[in-house]
Design a protein around this nucleic acid. Structure first.
Length: 764
DNA sequence: AGTCCAACTTAGAATACACATA
DNA sequence: TATGTGTATTCTAAGTTGGACT
């Protein structure tokens, strides 16, 4: 039944061809516009359509969007609302602090040991990949010297095997596969395991440790606080800004904001009406009153001189001498060393983003109503520090104060602040390789879904026939999420963000129904903008019952009405929770991505292929997933050129091959005549040369194919977020592919747990 | 049930960097 | 030795989810 889970190959190709200019934002703009206009009348329309549409009246209107009306009518009401929000926030925060600090106290009394100053272990900064002892015995081709440096002493080996055993137990436990037979000896000694001494000399294997109780994220946390953006440096006197053709000296504040625009002058953004409007509005707020009265039109502003200055600056930076570059590098390293790490529960861990986002102009994706707005500078007074009570609290910069210091070990972030564009909270958190980011659990949940997915599929098929509209909609939506790996699709506040949708928020205008199309029956044509305003375009044959349901859902609705008017993500996820513990809409994406990779790897890997060809197969399997998840990218600007380069290389190689073949031929002829050892040898060596060149040519051609197929598909997102790394590790082990052909250094760090624990026979 | 929002994951673009090549 | 190109890293926007509150 899962045959239709994945588009078949030819279909994938077809979809993409149809999709060649992949971001048809313009086409959508028009539609979006209509959508907005119409929203106002939407209530009315829905009112009308509702009754005819549903078998089953319910008086409570689902989406009361009254809030919209009261909200952004003008600046004043918005302000008012904001104030309110702030107050509420403050109140809640206070309560929270009290609560959590109390919690900590209790905890501490219980777990005394953890509050003592931690023993810090330095993690080696080098290449994170090392061979685990288990791997040593495998045929896996071991790489070059740099990896050898990491080999562990023999002694640890035995120790590790034990650990691995324990870990396996835990893993089973984790996946809720509670098979009593295997469980008889859940080694008691393992539970109270102390920090092993050998930790000094190797990477910390957090995945072999016990997990914390629900909700507790850490017991000790110490860090140096954030690094702020460098202060603004006014432009040199000779760099001019012109207004209406005349030189104008700007105040520092106004000048700073002007430089943000000047730096983006070459970017398409600055040509967009909304961007310009938003920018100008915010810029004016930074101006002195004289400036304000002079500068009344953005089109009379001339930033070109400023822009040239910045270009010259970047050019100069490139031209810097080695020593100067080295100096900068060292300075960066110093910063990283000091602020780039924190101590969390006895371990030094890398922080992902320790630098505060500098001020600038907001660059929303797609058709974002707020693009061009000024992202203000973040000051220490905006910053909330989170660390443990018994740690050294980072001092604020001289003359400044933190907004707040809290000690909440129920969250993972170290620093937070509220951003001024959407009013959302930004965080400083740890690197993906850290313990706290265990995506391992995510894959275990997906594997649990594997066990019950058939049941769930049968269930939603049944639900297509339900008497209740809500249930039917839920079932059809779930079918899409499962079959097409769509995102859940939360409602979004209108006018605050780009108009994008996911499954639950699909509107009637986003699908077209074709009772018959290109010889297929019941085809649904999807065309909408998803996350990051990436277009999703797909024609999918569906089951008759789904088709009929869709027709029903669309009856008497306007294009801008919700397709699933009785459904939202919260309803859907609640239902999923009942079907399986921990199941949410996004688990389907993870599950389908990983299972697809595994399937495709099985199908595409040819045992007789050499390594480059096998890697091409891997990339193709990866690509199938990226297509399923609709991970697209803009074709690289240099794509055509680089393709041509590659092609000329191939041509050259072909010529070389022809030459080599000719030489071989004549050598053979020669040998036939002479029949001596020397000429025989010559033939042999020519043969080898031909072979070598053939191989090189093959490699180049494979590379060309790979690149061409990758033109507008981004593999990295699925690789990083959706594919159970153990599948890839197992595949590498099975076929003797060095892991670094598949994962770069960062990825190996992130997936260290999988590299360590997956065997060649791992099954997702 | 609906709203709001904190916290966390997922995402593509921009930029930095390393390495190959002329 | 500079330059160009491909890859890795950084950046930060934009999703999902769940819990508190109403």
């Amino acid at each position: 039944m899962s045959g239709d889970q994945l588009h078949n190959d030819s279909q994938i190709e077809a979809d993409f061809r149809a999709n060649d200019s992949h971001k048809h934002k313009d086409k959508h703009k028009d539609r979006e516009h209509r959508h907005k206009e119409h929203k106002k009348d939407k209530e009315k329309d829905r009112e009308k359509s509702k009754h005819s549409n549903s078998e089953h009246k319910d008086s409570s209107e689902k989406k009361h969007k009254d809030k919209e009306k009261t909200k952004h009518k003008d600046g004043s009401s918005e302000k008012h609302k904001d104030k309110h929000k702030d107050k509420d926030k403050e109140k809640r925060k206070e309560e929270k602090i009290k609560l959590s600090s109390g919690d900590i106290k209790i905890k501490k009394e219980k777990e005394n040991g953890f509050s003592s100053p931690p023993r810090i272990k330095d993690e080696p900064d080098d290449d994170g990949f090392y061979a685990s002892p288990k791997e040593d015995s495998k045929p896996l081709k071991r790489p070059r010297e740099d990896d050898d440096a990491d080999y562990k002493p023999k002694k640890i080996k035995t120790e590790d095997v034990k650990k691995a055993k324990k870990r396996k137990q835990e893993e089973e436990e984790d996946s809720k596969a509670k098979k009593a037979k295997n469980k008889d000896k859940k080694s008691p000694e393992a539970d109270k395991r102390k920090k092993p001494k050998k930790e000094e000399e190797q990477k910390w294997k957090w995945w072999e440790e016990e997990r914390y109780p629900e909700g507790i994220k850490w017991k000790f946390l110490e860090h140096k606080g954030p690094v702020f953006a460098p202060p603004y440096e006014p432009l040199p006197e000779n760099v001019k800004f012109y207004y209406d053709g005349k030189v104008m000296k700007l105040s520092t504040k106004a000048e700073e904001v002007a430089t943000f625009f000047a730096k983006m002058l070459d970017h398409e953004y600055t040509t967009k009406e909304i961007f310009r409007k938003n920018f100008f509005k915010d810029w004016r707020k930074e101006m002195t009153s004289e400036e304000k009265s002079t500068i009344t039109s953005l089109s009379k502003c001339d930033f070109t001189h400023m822009s040239q200055y910045f270009k010259a600056q970047t050019e100069a930076r490139k031209q810097m001498s080695k020593e100067e570059k080295q100096k900068i590098k060292e300075e960066n390293e110093r910063l990283l060393k000091e602020y780039g790490y924190c101590v969390m529960d006895n371990h030094k861990e890398r922080i992902a983003n320790f630098k505060i986002e500098p001020p600038g102009l907001f660059r929303g994706r797609g058709n974002h109503p707020k693009m061009g707005m000024l992202k203000r500078r973040i000051m220490p007074e905006d910053i909330i520090i989170n660390c443990s009570k018994d740690s050294k609290v980072p001092p604020p910069p001289p003359g400044h104060k933190w907004k707040e210091v809290r000690h909440d070990n129920k969250v993972t972030w170290l620093v937070s602040w509220t951003e001024n564009i959407q009013g959302s909270i930004k965080y400083i958190m740890l690197n993906p390789s850290s313990r706290i980011k265990k995506d391992w659990q995510k894959y275990e949940t997906a594997r649990r879904l594997k066990k019950c997915v058939d049941k769930i599929r049968n269930q939603y098929r049944e639900d297509w026939k339900s008497k209740e509209m809500k249930v039917r909609q839920r079932a059809v939506a779930l079918y899409f999420i499962d079959k097409l790996a769509l995102r859940a699709g939360n409602e979004k506040e209108e006018g605050e963000t780009a108009d994008t949708v996911g499954c639950c928020s699909l509107r009637v205008e986003h699908i077209k129904l074709h009772p018959e199309l290109d010889g297929q029956e019941y085809v649904v044509e999807f065309d909408f903008l998803g996350k990051d305003s990436i277009r999703y375009y797909n024609k999918v044959p569906v089951e008759k019952r789904v088709f009929k349901n869709l027709q029903l859902f669309m009856e008497n609705k306007q294009p801008e009405d919700d397709l699933f008017d009785r459904l939202n993500t919260s309803i859907l996820n609640k239902h999923l929770q009942d079907l399986m513990e921990g199941l949410t809409a996004k688990v389907f994406r993870t599950y389908n991505a990983s299972i697809t990779l595994q399937q495709q790897l099985k199908e595409l890997t040819n045992p007789d292929d050499n390594i480059p060809a096998k890697i091409l197969s891997y990339n193709r399997a990866n690509r199938a997933v990226a297509i399923l998840c609709n991970h697209q990218r803009a074709p690289p600007k240099t794509f055509e050129k680089s393709m041509m380069n590659l092609q000329s290389k191939i041509d050259a190689k072909k010529e070389q091959l022809a030459d080599a073949r000719r030489e071989l031929k004549s050598a053979k002829a020669d040998a036939k005549v002479r029949r001596d050892e020397k000429s025989k040898k010559a033939v042999e060596s020519k043969k080898k040369a031909v072979q070598r060149i053939e191989e090189q040519l093959m490699k180049l051609e494979v590379q060309a194919t790979d690149r061409e197929e990758n033109k507008q598909i981004a593999l990295s997102t699925s690789k990083l977020n959706y594919l159970d790394p153990r599948i890839s590790v197992a595949w590498c082990k099975k076929w003797g592919i060095p892991i670094e052909k598949i994962y770069n250094k960062t990825q190996r760090e992130k997936f260290a747990w999988a590299i360590d624990m997956a065997e060649e026979d791992y099954e997702f």
